[in-house]
């Protein structure tokens, strides 16, 4: 393992701020893994710590294929963790909305530019990302449809689902999008949680990356076959909202659960009276893919995303 500085800058009160990367193996730029960019991405950072340990072990055992180099950058944003913020400490800008960056711009733009420079040229790019909505997911690989994405490669992670999505306005300023545009096969891996640690899904994420690296001939590792991924278009997900009211969100189902049309999947409870003000029903047969993870909810916001069961 080789520690290398990815970017360094001076700050007014925090001393020198250096983003570190860790290299395993040497040779061709085979795979690059990037962890948390926001200060609430604890699970993403945790996954990186597990992966770092594992890659170190593999390297010591000589299980990284010779001539292949892996770069792991656990976090681009230590400061936001340290002060309990989601976005950049001084100006609230979002590093994952700053790509491809500008080396003479503001701090997050400089970080993005420096990172872009370091991570360009890798064959495969993996980022542990978080969703803009706070919630729980079925673990999946997400690919932005740039026209350059490879769904069949995404299957090699062996996670239950591969989700493809048309780029939204803000996607164009993300690492994943710009990585793809610069010729790296880029994947975003979504674990179950973001703001809290979940051992099981963290281990699943680590296994999926090790499986992918093995299948791409970058490491030698004995891994389970994993799932045969179902490929889904994000458009196919069904959004379920609370159209009647806000209040306490009492969930009755969780991501991964199968539901039947007409099942009550949540109650919205009036915080004053304790009465149910709304019942949320499953609109069709299928599987819960995402659910909001907040104790209370606003009216008209999405509570669940579900996968329709395909009747053949």
């Amino acid at each position: 393992m080789n520690k290398e500085s990815i970017y360094s800058m001076n700050t007014a009160y925090r001393g020198e701020y250096t983003i570190w990367g860790y290299q395993f193996g040497s040779g061709d730029k085979a795979a690059c893994i990037v962890g948390s960019m926001r200060g609430n991405e604890f699970q993403q950072l945790y996954i990186c710590s597990l992966l770092s340990k594992k890659l170190s072990e593999l390297e010591n055992r000589g299980a990284i294929v010779s001539g292949k180099q892996i770069l792991l950058i656990p976090s681009l944003n230590y400061s936001s963790f340290n002060v309990g913020k989601k976005y950049w400490i001084t100006d609230n800008s979002d590093i994952n909305r700053s790509f491809p960056g500008n080396a003479s711009g503001q701090a997050t733009s400089r970080i993005a530019a420096a990172v872009m420079d370091k991570v360009t040229g890798y064959s495969y790019g993996i980022q542990f990302a978080s969703f803009y909505m706070e919630g729980v997911f079925v673990p999946h690989v997400r690919m932005i449809e740039t026209g350059k994405q490879s769904n069949s490669l995404a299957n090699q992670f062996g996670l239950p689902y591969v989700l493809t999505s048309v780029p939204r306005a803000y996607d164009k300023a993300t690492l994943n999008y710009n990585w793809q545009m610069r010729g790296t096969e880029a994947f975003s891996v979504y674990s179950k949680y973001t703001e809290r640690i979940d051992e099981e899904s963290a281990k699943q994420a680590v296994s999926s990356v090790l499986r992918f690296l093995t299948r791409m001939g970058i490491i030698r590792y004995n891994c389970h076959a994993g799932y045969i991924s179902t490929i889904l278009d994000e458009e196919e997900l069904l959004n379920i909202k609370s159209e009647k009211s806000g209040g306490f969100f009492r969930r009755l189902v969780y991501p991964g659960d199968e539901v039947v049309r007409g099942d009550i999947i949540a109650h919205i409870v009036n915080p004053m009276t304790g009465e149910n003000t709304a019942e949320i029903y499953a609109p069709t047969d299928g599987i819960i893919f995402f659910c909001q993870d907040t104790p209370m909810i606003y009216q008209n916001s999405v509570l669940f995303k579900m996968i329709r069961r395909l009747h053949n």
Partner: peptide, 26 residues
Amino acid sequence: NRYVPVFDTDMNTLFPGSTDGTVGEY
């Protein structure tokens, strides 16, 4: 708060919005 409270997102990144999203997108 410059952003949409709770969701902490810049509303000026959410347009044209969506009726299938957060309260800010709605």
